[in-house]
């Protein structure tokens, strides 16, 4: 099996998924794709070995590949959530700074 081709196909499929279903989080999602696929590389290699050794069936192999796609969605949501928290903290700091400056200028 050509791993690079498989990873390339998965990358395109995941990017499309992010753009179509999670448009609000697409920036965080796209940033996650590369790292996620790098992490998935060893899993794909292992699952392909298990399939070749007939320790898992083709249906189980397919199930695992799909689980990786679903796990990717979870990673995308997680990354988006963390970005949102960081931006929220930044926003609070901006508001605090503006408030401090305004109060000092007025009092």
């Amino acid at each position: 099996m050509d791993f690079e081709e498989l990873l390339k196909e998965m990358r395109n499929s995941l990017l499309l998924l992010v753009r179509e279903q999670y448009a609000d989080f697409s920036k965080a999602g796209e940033d996650t794709v590369t790292q996620f696929l790098e992490d998935a590389r060893e899993k794909l290699r292992k699952w392909t070995f298990l399939l070749a050794e007939e320790l898992i069936t083709p249906a189980e192999y397919e199930w695992l590949l799909k689980s990786q796609k679903d796990l990717f969605l979870m990673h995308t949501l997680y990354s988006a959530g963390i970005s949102k928290i960081r931006l929220g903290i930044f926003k609070n700091k901006v508001i605090n700074t503006i408030t401090d400056v305004a109060i000092k200028a007025l009092l």
């Binding site: 899993k43 298990l50 320790l55 898992i56 689980s67 990673h75």
Partner: peptide, 19 residues
């Protein structure tokens, strides 16, 4: 099968860890 359970369970655990 044991091999499938081991691999699929790892996927599920990773998902719950993210939550």
């Amino acid at each position: 099968s044991p091999a499938f359970v081991q691999e699929s369970k790892a996927q599920v655990m990773e998902a719950i860890n993210l939550i």
